[in-house]
Computed example of a mutant assay.
Amino acid sequence: MPSAELEQRVTAALASVIDPEIRRPITELDMLERVVAGDDGRVLVVVRLTIVGCPASDRIERDVRAAAEQIAGSGLVDVELTVMTPEQRAALTERLRGGRARTNPFGPGTLTRVIAITSGKGGVGKSSLTANLAVALAARGLSVGLVDADVHGFSIPGLLGLVDDEGTPTKPTRVDEMILPPVAHGVKAISIGMFIEPTEPGQRASSVAVAWRGPMLHRTLSQFLTDVYFGDLDVLLVDLPPGTGDIAISLGQLLPNAEVVVVTTPQAAAADVAERSGVVARQTGQRLIGVVENMAGFVSPDGTVLELFGSGGGAEVAKRLSAGQAEPVPLLASVPLSVALRQGGDAGEPVVVSAPDDPAARAIEQLAGAIASRPRELQGRRLDLSVR
């Protein structure tokens, strides 16, 4: 095969190599510097990494070699890795942002469905539900991002398995001022736990306390939305802290088109508190789309149901939040207590992946189906249309 033709065919094959962090072909990202074919049939492929020490370098090199060898032949490809210049990185970040300045892409006019998961109190399994819902939506072919806005009680990295053996969360990659979120089970996730460092000798990073007041919390959420490159998302889930504090108010300012799902348990006391979080969401301009009852009756092996936390709390919250509203707030799902769900959370394997036939997994899949099939609300959104 003539050298010029070999170079063209190898270049075309390299379009199938996807950067594992940016999720785009390396040929679109200007990462492919050159392809040179010699008279002896050997091919040299030079690839520009985005940064020095790129954590995805081994995978990129392996994928590039495999794609090129499909054309040139086994053992006939040499891969050389270099690093982008500051100017090339700046051009890349501008291209990824579509030429727009650093702004929140999920504000008014966004076509991404933004869903905030909230609860009136802690300990109701909100984060476990959010992580599993994100994975279930991604398994349906949707592009899903997840923001862990529970700054004081972050747990999303551990629930998704984005931690090492010591419990240290995976660090995002930085390309200049752009942050590339780690990906697990098809979900792009970001959490304050990925940035903090131990403050004492021998301390686990996952146990570091974050003691911040309102302004810092608002700034953190704003930076997650502005500086993290999620790409084009179908759904952005936001795991809110429990209660009705600063983050809930900031969400109303930063994500005015967010839809809200309220999580409660069957207990009457929990239902009372959950109602408050729904009321605050409505006061800050968000739209309540439903209630999820978590920790419902445990299904024992003989089929009997043990209602350890009582029953009816989810339906009661939905009823109260529907009162006086033109559109009722439905009970979207009732997720039973589940050993498999707890085990999956501890192991970083969401139950929808580790035990899809578990009753809790089936209930979460039902929830994902209800959300995925729900018509998108366009009222109050700016549609960028022009008439010629």
Rank of each mutant, 00 (worst) to 15 (best):
P2E: 15
A4N: 13
E5K: 10
R9K: 15
V10R: 11
V10P: 03
T11E: 10
L14S: 09
I18R: 03
D19Q: 04
E21N: 02
D30C: 02
D30W: 01
R34C: 09
V36M: 12
G41E: 08
L49E: 08
G53R: 11
G53V: 13
R59H: 09
I60D: 04
E61I: 00
A68Y: 08
A72G: 06
S74D: 07
G75A: 13
L76N: 09
M84C: 12
M84T: 09
T85N: 06
E87L: 12
A91H: 10
R95F: 15
L96H: 11
G98Q: 14
G98M: 14
P108E: 13
G109V: 11
V114I: 12
A116W: 00
V124L: 10
K126H: 05
K126N: 07
N132M: 09
L137V: 13
G141C: 10
G141P: 06
L142T: 00
S143T: 15
S143F: 00
D148A: 06
H152Y: 15
S155F: 05
P157M: 02
G158M: 10
D165P: 06
G167E: 10
T168N: 10
K171W: 10
T173E: 11
P181A: 14
P182Q: 11
G186D: 10
G186M: 14
K188M: 09
A189E: 01
S191F: 01
F195P: 08
P201S: 12
S207D: 14
S207R: 03
A211K: 05
G214W: 12
L217N: 01
L217G: 06
T220R: 03
D227L: 13
L233C: 07
D234H: 11
P242K: 01
G243L: 02
I247E: 06
I247H: 08
G252M: 13
E259W: 09
V260D: 05
V263H: 08
V273F: 01
V273R: 03
V273K: 07
G278S: 06
A281Y: 02
R282T: 09
T284K: 01
G285W: 00
I289W: 05
V292W: 01
V292F: 08
A296D: 08
G297L: 01
S300A: 15
S300N: 13
G303H: 04
G303F: 04
T304W: 07
L308F: 08
G310W: 06
S311E: 14
S311A: 15
V317E: 01
A318I: 07
K319R: 15
S322F: 05
V335R: 00
P336Q: 11
L337Y: 07
G348V: 07
P356N: 03
I364R: 03
A370L: 06
I371P: 08
A372T: 13
R381W: 01
L383M: 15
D384C: 03
L385S: 10
S386K: 13
